[in-house]
Amino acid sequence: MPGVIKLRLEIQRPWLKVGPFWATLAGSIAAGGFSLQPRNWLLLVLVLFLTEGVMGNWWDHLLRLAGWKTSDRAEAIEMVPPPPYALPGSLAWKLWESLNRFAIWWMHIFWPQEGTDFLGLLVFTGLTWVLGIILGRITYPLIAGAQALGILGAMVARRGGDYLPAKGLFAVTFPWLLGCITFGAVTPIAFMVALLFGLMLWGIEERKAGKTAWLLLGTPQLALVLLLWWAKQPLLAAMVACIGLGLFFLLVGEREVKRLHLPLILSMLLSALALALPG
Rank of each mutant, 00 (worst) to 15 (best):
Ile5Cys: 02
Ile5Ser: 08
Leu7Lys: 09
Gly33Cys: 04
Phe34Asp: 01
Asn40Ile: 01
Leu42Gln: 13
Thr51Ile: 02
Thr51Phe: 02
Gly53Lys: 01
Asn57Leu: 14
Ala66Pro: 07
Trp68Asp: 03
Lys69Asp: 05
Thr70Glu: 09
Asp72Thr: 02
Ala74Ser: 14
Glu78Met: 13
Asn100Leu: 10
Asn100Ser: 11
Phe102Val: 09
Ile104Glu: 00
Pro112Tyr: 10
Gln113His: 15
Glu114Gly: 12
Asp117Met: 01
Asp117Arg: 07
Leu119Arg: 12
Leu119Cys: 04
Val123Trp: 10
Phe124Tyr: 15
Thr125Phe: 15
Leu127Asn: 06
Gly145Glu: 09
Ala146Val: 03
Ala148Asp: 09
Gly153Ser: 15
Arg159Ile: 01
Tyr163Cys: 02
Leu169Cys: 01
Phe174Pro: 00
Trp176Ser: 03
Leu177Thr: 00
Pro188Trp: 11
Pro188His: 10
Ala190Asn: 06
Thr212Asp: 15
Ala213Gly: 05
Thr219Met: 12
Leu222Val: 09
Val225Asn: 01
Val225His: 02
Ala237Phe: 06
Ala241Ser: 13
Cys242Asn: 04
Gly244His: 06
Leu245Val: 15
Leu247Asp: 00
Phe249Tyr: 14
Val252Ser: 07
Glu256Arg: 15
Leu260His: 11
Ile265Trp: 01
Ser267Thr: 06
Leu269Met: 15
Ala272Val: 06
Leu275Asp: 04
Leu277Trp: 15
